[in-house]
Design a binder for these strands. Structure first.
Lengths: 208, 208
DNA sequence: GTCTATACGATGATAGAC
DNA sequence: GTCTATCATCGTATAGAC
């Protein structure tokens, strides 16, 4: 679970306070037991409210998930975009994007779990909207790889396939990451950035 | 969804016939909507039976999942082990293991989804048993990487971390693979084997 | 905005006939 | 072994008082 401070910051623009408390409670519950196994009673209870109070702020349980998924995807996209423009060379930008994206999945693994693994519980309309944001994330990473290939810095036979693999690697961190484990988010980010540079055939310290 | 022929083969040792039909129905339902969102009525219906018939063959819904997870993990472990001993060099064995493991996750992505993403729905006892099999899979892959490092064929600063990343990459195929997509399981297996050889710093055609 | 009380359909599982 | 019928409980969501 994220720390309380991290939660407050992440959900700062969910107001009023009760609505934010419900979001935080729902993220914890969904991440822990899954969307379908979580009851509205459980969410309300974690937020210190009666079951009925949830419906003042959200019309349905799915709307609560939609809110979480929307904010979560916005955060994820922002992080990748910002990191993707940090660095002079494609290799630096790719390493930066992977390091940041992985770190987010580890640090905010509760949120990331809901964002990445509960898409199927969204309504068709909500899913379509979220899927568009996911394609933006994919496009951001693909652009860096294309830049690297054009510049002759990367050797990548299959750019879309490699993009998919890179994102897949980052996303799956949310599944296995354990806060009590031996590795910090920072360490995993550094390891993965190195592995990804190897995947795209970028020369440098990775080969050392 | 897997083809019918693939299903029969996979679950051949689940008998009698009705019990196998229920397993196949449950795999489809669990993969499509998740364990918790699937009702016993849905499973029985797909198998062409009344809701009560399920309880002749399985004491609870969780026992059905446990059966699926058990057989699925046994299949996965067998596939990795067999592939891991195919090839003369560590690079060949690693490529073989990744290619086979990825192909299994793509070809049997319905089964793989249940196996990889519904662990949390198992009882504590059943989970502990399954987790032991998962550690065997991890150990099999790690051994190959250690062999490659010892032989001087691989350059891997962090063996456990790289093992984790390799398995993570393979497992996540079950999440995103789509049978109607552009890539065949065979193609994805080949791509991933190449990417993994790059990750471990194996020289060869990967660098071409 | 929050609570207590409750409607009411769905759900896992069982009983007993065939 | 399978079915029909049913139980007890739970789950989402609403009504109406404060």
């Amino acid at each position: 679970m994220d720390t309380e401070a991290q939660q407050s910051e992440q959900w700062a623009d969910v107001t009023p306070d009760a609505a934010r408390r419900l979001v935080i409670a729902a993220v914890d519950a969904f991440a822990e037991r899954g969307y379908h196994a979580t009851t509205t009673r459980d969410i309300a209870g974690r937020a210190g409210m009666s079951p009925a109070a949830l419906y003042i702020h959200y019309k349905t349980k799915e709307e609560l998930l939609y809110r979480i998924s929307g904010v979560g995807h916005r955060l994820a996209l922002d992080i990748v975009r910002r990191a993707a423009s940090t660095g002079a060379t494609p290799a630096e930008r790719l390493a930066s994007a992977v390091r940041s994206f992985v770190r987010w999945h580890a640090e905010h693994h509760t949120t990331a779990r809901v964002v990445q693994y509960e898409l199927g519980a969204l309504s068709a309309e909500h899913y379509a909207e979220i899927a568009a944001r996911r394609r933006e994330i994919d496009g951001t990473v693909r652009s860096i790889i294309e830049d690297g290939v054009r510049a002759g810095d990367f050797a990548v036979p299959d750019v879309p396939g490699t993009t998919l693999a890179v994102l897949s690697l980052c996303i799956d961190v949310a599944r296995w990451f354990n806060a009590e484990g031996r590795r910090t988010p920072e360490e995993i980010g550094a390891l993965y950035a190195d592995l990804v540079l190897r995947m795209v055939g970028a020369p440098g310290p990775a080969a050392a």
